[in-house]
């Protein structure tokens, strides 16, 4: 199976990902409309997908119980800013991230990618991969896979992996076993980046911030900055510094953006057209922590360039 799709709305990306078994929530961190496209291919034991977007997107909630989700990026244009982060691991042109999806609970992973690169995800069967690593006695690969977030791989295998994925996305996957071999090689040959203690702490904090922003309870009754500080046991300055560095906006602003995006998903999924638009918007606004529908509509307009009522009409 192979497919290439282009979209006008990042929500459509998450709909397609959901069809592929990834329940990912996507939030656009830049304002305005963009263009988005996705190619993917699937066969038994392997699933690959590449996403290009003209805006910076935050992905939350991927990872399944059966797979390890490897990620890499392909630069599209030169930039001095980082291309993106996979679970906080800064993704460079030679990085492979997402290793810790082997340990984490399904749906707890996140990533953020800028418009300067495309991002590719490659899902391999967890059990099959571990068995094959054990069978060829790849101790380093096993160690890296189970204890690291990401690796920088300059080995020839990484290049081959990228080429293979690229060609399979247009032609369809012929030989799934090749992916297992190439990934094994990458895991074995990759270099580990060394982090300072404080940097490791930041990576942990980042994941907590992303997960807190996406918690349904918190979306319904948004936390104030001082609540967030207490909950995460962190100072406001460090929260702002870390959010600015990794997401380019303030923490409260980021949490709001996630709520807005989720409310939009709810509006678009609105199936019941029996009640008036006005009361639907009110209900959705309140469900996502916006007490006043007017304020919600204004904020919504700033982010998406259309009013909630226009979104419902399109649904």
């Amino acid at each position: 199976m192979k497919l290439s799709l282009s979209y006008k709305d990042p929500l459509q990306l998450s709909e397609t990902l959901a069809e592929l078994g990834q329940n990912t929530r996507i939030t656009q961190l830049d304002l305005g409309e963009g263009t988005y496209s996705m190619s993917h291919a699937m066969s038994s034991g392997v699933s690959i997908a590449e996403i290009k977007a003209s805006k910076t997107l935050l992905y939350e909630g991927w990872g399944t119980d059966w797979s390890v989700d490897f990620n890499w990026i392909t630069p599209i244009k030169a930039t001095t800013d980082p291309f993106g982060y996979c679970e906080g691991y800064e993704m460079r042109s030679n990085s492979i991230g997402g290793l810790n999806t082997i340990n984490s609970a399904p749906g707890s992973s996140w990533g953020k990618y800028s418009e300067a690169c495309s991002s590719t995800a490659c899902m391999l069967d967890k059990a099959v991969l571990i068995d094959s690593l054990k069978a060829c006695n790849a101790q380093t690969a096993l160690e890296n896979l189970t204890t690291k977030r990401g690796l920088d791989v300059d080995h020839f295998a990484a290049l081959q992996l990228r080429k293979l994925a690229q060609s399979d996305m247009s032609k369809g996957i012929v030989n799934a076993a090749k992916y297992y071999d190439l990934i094994t090689c990458c895991l074995e040959e990759g270099t580990v980046r060394h982090y300072k203690k404080s940097e490791l702490k930041n990576l942990g904090l980042l994941s907590e911030i992303v997960s807190l922003s996406h918690s349904n309870d918190v979306m319904q009754s948004p936390m104030s900055l001082s609540d967030v500080c207490k909950y995460l046991d962190a100072g406001q300055a460090s929260l702002y510094r870390i959010c600015q560095e990794y997401f380019g906006i303030g923490i409260i602003e980021m949490m709001m953006q996630v709520r807005l995006e989720e409310s939009r998903r709810a509006l678009l999924r609105q199936k019941d057209h029996s009640q008036s638009h006005e009361s639907t918007i009110r209900e959705v606004a309140i469900r996502y922590g916006f007490k006043h529908a007017g304020r919600y509509a204004r904020r919504y307009f700033t982010s998406f360039g259309e009013l909630p009522s226009q979104t419902i009409q399109r649904s």
Binding site: S224, L225, Q236, A237, L239, Y240, G250, I252
Partner: peptide, 10 residues
């Protein structure tokens, strides 16, 4: 000066 940023926002 991220305290300043936090205060501007909150």
């Amino acid at each position: 000066a991220y305290n300043a940023y936090a205060r501007l926002e909150e």
